[in-house]
Design a protein around this nucleic acid. Sequence first.
DNA 1: TGCATTACTTACCAATTGGAAACTAGTTTC
DNA 2: GAAACTAGTTTCCAATTGGTAAGTAATGCA
Lengths: 121, 121
Amino acid sequence: MLKSKTVTKSLECKVRITAITDTMQVLSGKWKIHILGTLLQGGKMRFMDLLREIDGIAAKMLSKELQDLEMNQLVTRTVVDTKPITVEYEVTEYGKTMEPIIDEIANWGVFYRNRLHGKTD
Amino acid sequence: MLKSKTVTKSLECKVRITAITDTMQVLSGKWKIHILGTLLQGGKMRFMDLLREIDGIAAKMLSKELQDLEMNQLVTRTVVDTKPITVEYEVTEYGKTMEPIIDEIANWGVFYRNRLHGKTD
DNA sequence: TGCATTACTTACCAATTGGAAACTAGTTTC
DNA sequence: GAAACTAGTTTCCAATTGGTAAGTAATGCA
């Protein structure tokens, strides 16, 4: 019988797999990273700002994704008592810990495009 | 009229948004990160090794995801002329550039679990 | 001869995701 | 009084995702 490789059976690997699954779940869906990225750059933003800013998103999706992000304490929702009521969304300190991930993902994407055309390798 | 925030309309931001979308597309689906993570740790691995190693994945999914990864040149597929034919999969040098992303995602996931229970903040 | 192993593929099905459009509801402006 | 702006919610539908199970084809072993 051939000896087969076993790399994911240690506790360490299982922890890593769970960690990856957790993060991907928190960032699941088409829009969460973009909402987070936009809020990280824009600071406090209102619902309508986000709706106009994030190209292609529908109100239903924005609303649902913001609820998810709020539930995971990555953003805060604050109702402001203006003329027509407005709601401000902002990334929490905890939410800001996502920045390294988003940056790495953005960096890789740039690298990917360059490779497709540049072909330096 | 209220002045609304515009943060994603610059060329720089559009490039970033495209970059994020590209990366997420390359890593799309439930399994790609795990396959990549397993191969990064295990080096050369056969189809059946991966099938046994990656908990819960079905042959259909593994096959399809490996094809996607191969198309994007993140892994190589090599047929080995053994008794029953075997196929070896390996992460390319290019594929290894995904490591920082995977590491950040894994790190955040560990941080997330610690926060859920530890509550140091 | 028949069963096992390798690496898949195919067929079918269920659940989730996400998009369009319309609707709600309170307030303000013309 | 009508239209517009705020922040959503609701309904309905289509596409994608992913899972189970079975089938295929080549080879080796008892």
